[in-house]
């Protein structure tokens, strides 16, 4: 079972992130995926989040308790939800919008300028899709094909192409970051070995 929280401020398409991922997993990746959203009285602004429980068996408890994955697209959301993230979890942020504290425990941090990329593609409204592409690449919890299949019906038809482009942008960046991390890790491991050998 995996618990995921998408968070940001209202209007960023945070609920949509949960919906797309949930649909991709439940309909095309053969998982059980239960999506819930936190409702506040305000429709826009303020911290907003959607939560997804993913499992091979039926989801019994419908809410997340201690997420393995946190996506934060605003400082307020990061401040609010970071403390509940598992010590071995994955933290994904929009690096232009969130200034993270030094990482806690074994939390793996992945950062992307999602909103900036979206602006470069022509519309900041698709920052959530950039983020989803990135999320898909770095978490590997869902296949990119399923994510793309999930889009029709959840994004406006006339913006489907643009959303796909945004997804790809984020996904490619994710692969790149992963590759760099791996490189860094092997380098790190190698130097660790070296230092051990020295001892």
């Amino acid at each position: 079972m995996t618990e995921i929280r998408f968070s940001g401020f209202g209007g960023q398409g945070i609920i949509r992130c949960g919906l797309i991922t949930g649909k991709a997993l439940a309909l095309y990746d053969n998982k059980h995926a239960t999506m819930n959203q936190s409702f506040g009285p305000e429709a826009r602004g303020s911290a907003c989040s959607s939560q997804l429980v993913v499992s091979d068996d039926r989801v019994l408890y419908p809410y997340i308790t201690q997420p393995e994955i946190l996506v934060a697209m605003s400082q307020e959301a990061y401040d609010k939800y970071e403390p509940e993230l598992r010590e071995d979890g994955i933290l994904i942020i929009d690096k232009d919008l969130v200034k993270p504290r030094p990482p806690r425990g074994k939390i793996k941090l992945f950062a992307i300028p999602a909103t900036r990329f979206a602006e470069e593609l022509g519309n900041r409204i698709i920052a959530n899709l950039v983020m989803l592409g990135f999320f898909t690449a770095v978490t590997k919890i869902v296949t990119p094909d399923s994510m793309k299949k999930a889009l029709p019906g959840l994004v406006p038809d006339r913006f489907l192409e643009l959303n796909l482009k945004a997804f790809d942008r984020g996904y490619e960046y994710g692969l790149q970051v992963l590759a760099e991390k791996e490189k860094g890790q092997t380098k790190g491991k190698a130097s660790a070995k070296k230092s051990k050998a020295k001892k």
């Binding site: 919906l19 439940a26 059980h32 999506m35 819930n36 959203q37 419908p62």
Partner: peptide
């Protein structure tokens, strides 16, 4: 509310 707002297959 929980079931009403819960998305599933």
């Amino acid at each position: 509310e929980c079931v009403g707002h819960m998305h599933e297959k």
